[in-house]
């Protein structure tokens, strides 16, 4: 049994107030420019969407929490830990690109992997692999709307991005650690 490594969190912190401020500002904007009817329509439809998503989110959270407890820590550390090199970042990016599912799946999975030993860079590589190279979205949606040669160009240009971002993050972390040590 491992200790819970997550920082203690308050239910209402600055992150929540930030999201709330955006909602209030944009809500006021809609109220002023579009009027009360549109405001109410958007509010109700998004509350409905949130309610509809709740069972999915609950499952995602349960899955991520269970994964963090089930996955063998030494193996996760070896494959996608801080010392896993470019290979680890490539594994994480590929996992992100291949695993089907939207934000309700990929974010909890990434959080679960990070609790089990993946480093920040591998987490970012996984999320980036999913949003830039997610096979599901590219095949189902992008190719329906955009010409194939442009899609191919975008995908080819995007291929190195998850790994480059991961490497940059690791370099930044090392740099900070060195500066702290000296």
């Amino acid at each position: 049994m491992t200790d819970d490594p997550r920082p203690r969190r308050r239910l209402f912190d600055s992150g929540f107030y930030f999201v709330l401020a955006i909602a209030l500002a944009s809500g006021t904007g809609v109220l002023v420019t579009h009027g009360w009817d549109t405001f109410r329509e958007i509010l109700l439809s998004d509350l409905g969407l949130a309610a509809l998503l709740m069972p999915k989110i609950a499952a995602g959270v349960l899955l991520a929490t269970a994964l963090a407890l089930v996955l063998p820590k030494d193996k996760v550390l070896h494959h996608v830990g801080p010392e896993s090199g470019i290979r680890g970042l490539a594994i994480a990016a590929t996992a992100g690109a291949v695993i089907p599912g939207g934000p309700a799946v990929t974010f909890p999975l990434t959080a679960g992997l990070m609790t089990a030993g993946a480093d920040l860079a591998a987490g970012v590589a996984m999320v980036t692999g999913w949003i830039l190279l997610g096979l599901n979205r590219t095949i189902v949606w992008e190719l329906t709307f955009l010409p194939a040669d442009l899609v191919l160009l975008r995908v080819l240009l995007s291929l190195p991005v998850p790994i480059v971002l991961g490497l940059a993050l690791r370099a930044a972390v090392r740099h900070r650690a060195r500066r702290r040590a000296s």
């Binding site: 819970d4 969190r9 239910l11 209402f12 992150g15 929540f16 999201v19 709330l20 955006i22 909602a23 209030l24 944009s26 809500g27 904007g29 809609v30 420019t33 579009h34 549109t38 405001f39 958007i42 509010l43 439809s45 998004d46 509350l47 969407l49 949130a50 998503l53 709740m54 989110i57 609950a58 959270v61 349960l62 991520a64 929490t65 269970a66 407890l69």
Partner: peptide, 29 residues
């Protein structure tokens, strides 16, 4: 497992609801 999952879910619930509503308003703007 159930304690951690429950905590995380409660933490996310208000954020997600407010975030989705804000997203809807932004989209209309």
């Amino acid at each position: 497992l159930y304690r951690r999952a429950g905590e995380t879910f409660l933490f996310m619930l208000p954020r997600l609801a407010v975030g989705l509503i804000g997203a809807g308003f932004l989209a209309a703007l």
